[in-house]
Write a protein that binds this DNA or RNA. Structure first.
Length: 716
RNA sequence: GCGCGGUUAGCUCAGUUGGUAGAGCGCCACAUUGACGUUGUGGAUGUCGCAGGUUCGAAUCCUGCACCGCGCACCA
């Protein structure tokens, strides 16, 4: 027996060494597996793309969970003989990364992006991204992830950029990408547009003011934003509202807080006669609903608020912040005796997810993806393209009830605004020269200028399953590994990412990006709170791995954690699995000590055969569980068998046998124990790869890695 | 407002097609120079949120209700 077993298992000393052996073997790369005959030439492919972490800093426990889950599937499939590929990569995460770097520069140097200029800012962000990338890569390795680093990708690298340009051009040519002047979600803090999905709502107290534009104006209106009323062009009432019928079609002139306005009364079905006064002040330039009303009634659209959330009007309001202007307008209404009512209400305000800036709806010329337009020669829209594969079962979402959430989102989906006024990201591949426009590739000749904006970061993320495989080249990888088998990610990005991948793949390849979507939940602390910087309750995967071992962290994250459900994690739980690693260590120590020189050809007694059959049944069970994505059960079952069957019962029973004088029973028991241990290590390996690999060195017959051993198949 | 999920032991959660309630942690008692610093054995605690229904049989299926959480939309 190896002397190492005389001391307790030491994950800190073991894990980095084991990882190095795996890397040196080259077997994370499926090509090496083929070359060395560990995967058969005709083997079926199994592929996963790693959801690329943002290059904004460090990994957290949510990433650790993602890695643990994906590695379980990947390692299992690899052992089962599949041609298995797990592709790593990172995401440039446009707005997120740029705002982190901008904040830092502003804090340290007091400079804005405009002080630095585009080129210098991009250089700074690039340096930050590189550093962040290296941290992330080392963290991924610490967790034991068996990713094929030879295929690493970055959303902003050359190959991925080519994919982005290709898809952009195809969509433009199909008429799905268009440039239009529409109301967008403007983030005054981040100085950029954002998509509907990048908005978060927060409930705040507000005042609802009821007033008239002027003394002569016949109708009262209500609003929480009186300062926008200088941009009003109409009052809309319900067509059947008898109170206001006589005014419909008439136009009234007024001077509202020094700003001359002209208000037409229009009848529109969208107006709820029961709300407030039943009359709606229409501000087309600063409200989506009002913009649509203006469309229907052919009303002008006067912009009164600029990109800095400041007023742009005649008179003393000009240049004031909207909050200031609001107070001034209310004051003016009071003085003029126009204010009729002031009520406290609570309302949801829209904030930009990344910057917490209050969203200001503004009309702007931006690039959009039309989700409703019929795709030429396909007879369906992008929306339908997103719905179909989930509806007809080509894609399964786990847990299944999330498909309702998915469908609901698509039904409410509006055109996707894809242009951003930030610098870090894929510059929109469109060039202008006078009235000329070129899309997709740099045009020849002088005088061309490229669009200043960049693409929404999720545009490139949407291509991830095939851009990572080298598309648009028809590479061997692309042909072999696409569509991927599984997408494992958090349920919080089902819209951002999962839906966009289905959209992009449906459009560009007329195919699905993956067959199964496994949505994991949030990792919370022991009290059930979200982990956050401000609470200081973050667990750092690196510290956890250092203290308890990555194996322990992986098990703690997997056992009992069903898809779609949030999980609580505490050091106590992780510690329990550190103990389990040590338990395995001691089980091995006992078995190796007692079986030295055992005759492996000795037949099993009937009772030992029955015990062996128990493990076979467990293997069948666990294999099915993993196939059906119930890894939380599989892990628990293996744990239970190892500790409470093998250690507590079988080893205890063996002590009696080895003291006795039934030589045949002794010999049989030795063979049994070794066989149980060996197969147990195999099925536990995907969950706790390090300790099982380390033990394997002392159990194996040749010089093989457990990582590439054949999955026990007595099961089938 | 629309939709989704949860409610099972003190705590955290499993329970895959309906067949006499499970795990981990915690708690209590006992044992222990033991393969085990990280051990074992035994034990207590549940009207499976509430009310109905289907069924020979319901934690599981159906209906309604309550509370908690989440998503989407949002009324100006």
């Amino acid at each position: 027996m190896d002397d190492k077993f005389l001391k307790p298992y030491d994950p800190q000393a073991t894990e980095p060494r084991i990882f190095q052996e795996w890397e040196e073997s080259g077997y994370f790369n499926p090509d090496r597996m083929l070359e060395d005959g560990l995967t058969k030439p005709g083997a079926k492919a199994y592929s996963i793309v790693l959801p690329p972490p943002n290059v904004t800093g460090r990994l957290h426990m949510g990433h650790a969970l993602m890695l643990a889950v994906e590695d379980v599937f990947v390692r299992t499939k690899r052992m089962q003989g599949y041609r298995t590929l797990w592709i790593p990569g990172t995401d440039h995460a446009a707005i997120a990364t740029q705002s982190v770097v901008e904040k830092e520069i502003s804090k340290k140097e007091g400079k804005s992006r405009h002080d630095l200029g585009r080129e210098e800012l991009l250089a700074r962000i690039g340096a930050f991204a590189n550093e962040s990338h290296d941290t992330i890569v080392s963290q991924l390795k610490v967790m034991g992830a068996s990713l094929d680093w030879s295929r690493e990708a970055f959303t902003l690298d050359e190959t991925r950029t080519r994919a982005v340009h290709t898809v952009f051009k195809q969509m433009y040519d199909a008429g799905l990408i268009y440039r239009g002047n529409r109301i967008v979600n403007w983030d005054p803090k981040g100085q950029t547009t954002i998509s509907d999905d990048e908005i978060v709502h927060e409930e705040r107290k507000a005042k609802l003011y009821t007033f008239k534009y002027s003394k002569d104006f016949p109708i009262s209106i209500s609003t929480t934003r009186p300062e926008t009323k200088v941009g009003d062009v109409a009052v809309a009432v319900h067509p059947d509202d008898t109170r206001y019928k006589e005014f419909v079609g008439k136009t009234f002139e007024a001077v509202f807080c020094e700003v001359p306005i002209s208000i037409r009364v229009v009848a529109d079905k969208e107006v709820d006669p029961a709300f407030g006064t039943g009359a709606l002040g229409v501000t087309p330039a600063h409200s989506q609903i009002d913009w649509d009303i203006a469309d229907r009634h052919d009303l002008p659209r006067t912009q009164v608020i600029n990109e800095y959330a400041k007023m742009m009007v005649e008179g003393r309001l000009n240049g004031k912040k909207t909050s200031e202007a609001r107070d001034m307008v209310v004051e003016w209404l009071r003085e003029e005796g126009l204010l009729e009512k002031e009520e406290d209400i609570s309302q949801n305000i829209s904030l930009a997810e990344r910057t917490s800036g209050v969203i200001e709806p503004l009309p702007k010329l931006q690039w959009f993806i039309d989700v409703n337009k019929e795709i030429p020669e396909r007879g369906k829209s992008l929306k339908e393209l997103m719905l179909e594969p989930v509806r007809d079962g080509r894609i399964t979402i786990l847990p299944e009830h999330f498909d309702k959430t998915y469908f609901h989102w698509i039904e409410n989906l509006r055109d996707w605004c894809i242009s951003r006024q930030i610098w870090y990201g894929h510059r929109i591949p469109v060039w202008y020269r006078g009235d000329e426009i070129v899309v997709g590739e740099v045009p020849d000749g002088d005088g061309w200028s490229q669009d200043e904006d960049t693409l929404d970061t999720w545009f490139s993320s949407g291509l991830w399953t095939f851009s990572t495989l080298g598309w648009p080249e028809q590479t061997e990888d692309f042909k072999t590994y696409h569509p991927t088998a599984l997408l494992e990610t958090g349920y919080d990005i089902i819209f951002f990412w999962v839906a966009r991948m289905i959209l992009m793949t449906g459009f560009a390849l007329n195919d699905i990006p993956f067959k199964t979507v496994y949505l994991h939940g949030l990792v919370r602390d022991a009290q059930g709170r979200k982990m956050s910087k401000s609470l200081g309750n973050n667990l750092d995967p690196l510290e956890i791995a250092d203290k308890f071992g990555a194996d322990a962290a992986r098990m703690a994250l997997i056992v009992g954690n069903t898809p779609g459900t949030d999980t609580r994690i505490s050091e106590d739980k992780i510690k329990g699995y550190k103990n389990f690693a040590n338990k395995l260590w001691n089980i091995t120590r006992y078995i190796l000590t007692e079986t030295e020189g055992a005759d492996l050809s000795h037949p099993l007694t009937d009772s030992d055969q029955a015990i062996r059959a128990e493990l076979d049944a467990l293997i069948t069970d666990v294999t099915t569980d993993i196939d059906e994505h119930r890894i939380y059960l599989a892990a628990e079952k293996i744990y239970h068998f190892a500790w409470h069957r093998l250690a507590d019962e079988l080893i205890e029973e063996s002590k009696g046998i080895f003291i006795g004088n039934d030589e045949s029973a002794k010999a049989s028991r030795k063979v049994l124990l070794l066989s149980l241990l060996s197969d147990l290590l195999k099925i536990l390996h995907p969950f706790m790869p390090f300790v099982t690999e380390e033990i394997w060195k002392s159990v194996r017959s040749g010089d093989t890695l457990l990582m590439v051993e054949k999955w026990p198949s007595s099961a089938v």
